[in-house]
């Protein structure tokens, strides 16, 4: 574990020099947020209206939160990095190293995203306040619980992205799969909550990655509830284990094939 913390830390330090990029990147986030804010302001005729169980303020905060999770998981670049490792043969060098490839990738990715997460969270909270003039009411303890849930959510997203990247063992270019995955997460969990979808498909979504990576944490943010928290945490742990096992299996199988083919 110690070495992964070290990898995390050194990646974090080396990313400090890209602070400028993070701030410019936030402009993109802000624009997206601005568009969605306008959309919801248009959809809600007045602020007391409730659509699918959410007030307008809750809706906007929901989107602010899911968009942070989305931006901070930085999946597109991460996925192509994993793909590159697989296709470029970098992964073969990692076989002999005394750490797990998945652990290494995860630690360095989280290190890379750490500053971005802090900068985005602070700025997004300020922006949300400027748009709406209020914060969701949360106690310190609830905030800590949210941080935990969000962290696990990002870890799960990252693991899922690693899985998609590792598909490159089988297909040459896994990025199309990633687009589709990311669009599903975007539509079913980022732009609006699960409650917006027909009753028939809601249970499916409640068991999907959307629940543990975006919808769940964001729902807690706008409406904290201990039962929901525990429920999400439980599902997250299950997902965490399953996602890790899937990654490990794919890596093992992939590397085995690699050896047979002589890289």
């Amino acid at each position: 574990m110690k070495k992964y913390i070290f990898i995390f830390k050194s990646e974090l330090m080396s990313n400090l020099q890209y602070t400028f990029n993070i701030f410019v990147g936030f402009i993109g986030y802000l624009i997206m947020l601005f568009i969605l804010f306008n959309l919801y302001r248009y959809l809600y005729s007045d602020s007391s209206e409730i659509i699918n169980g959410y007030t307008m303020n809750q809706m906007v905060w929901y989107v602010i939160f899911t968009e942070i999770l989305w931006s901070v998981s930085g999946g597109r670049k991460f996925c192509s990095k994993i793909s590159e490792d697989v296709r470029g043969g970098n992964i073969a060098y990692n076989i002999n190293k005394p750490y797990s490839y998945i652990g290494y990738s995860l630690a360095s990715h989280l290190g890379e995203m750490f500053i971005k997460a802090i900068v985005y969270t602070i700025l997004a909270m300020i922006m949300g306040y400027l748009f709406l003039g209020m914060f969701p009411s949360l106690s310190i303890l609830e905030i800590l619980a949210l941080i935990l849930i969000s962290f696990i959510a990002i870890v799960i997203s990252s693991l899922l992205v690693i899985c998609i990247g590792l598909l490159s063992f089988r297909i040459e270019d896994s990025s199309p799969i990633y687009w589709l995955y990311s669009k599903l997460i975007l539509i079913f969990g980022t732009i609006f909550p699960i409650e917006y979808f027909p009753k028939a498909i809601q249970p499916i979504l409640n068991y999907s990655p959307v629940y543990v990576t975006t919808y769940g944490p964001a729902r807690l943010f706008v409406n904290f509830n201990l039962d929901t928290f525990l429920n999400i945490l439980l599902f997250q742990l299950i997902y965490l284990i399953l996602a890790y096992l899937l990654c490990a299996l794919m890596y093992k199988k992939g590397v085995k094939n690699l050896n047979v083919n002589g890289g």
Binding site: P176, W179, K183, I187, F188
Partner: peptide, 15 residues
């Protein structure tokens, strides 16, 4: 697959 998946990717926004 790049071409086809991009069509699907765009189509997902219909939802």
């Amino acid at each position: 697959s790049n071409v086809v998946f991009m069509v699907l990717n765009n189509a997902s926004f219909i939802i």
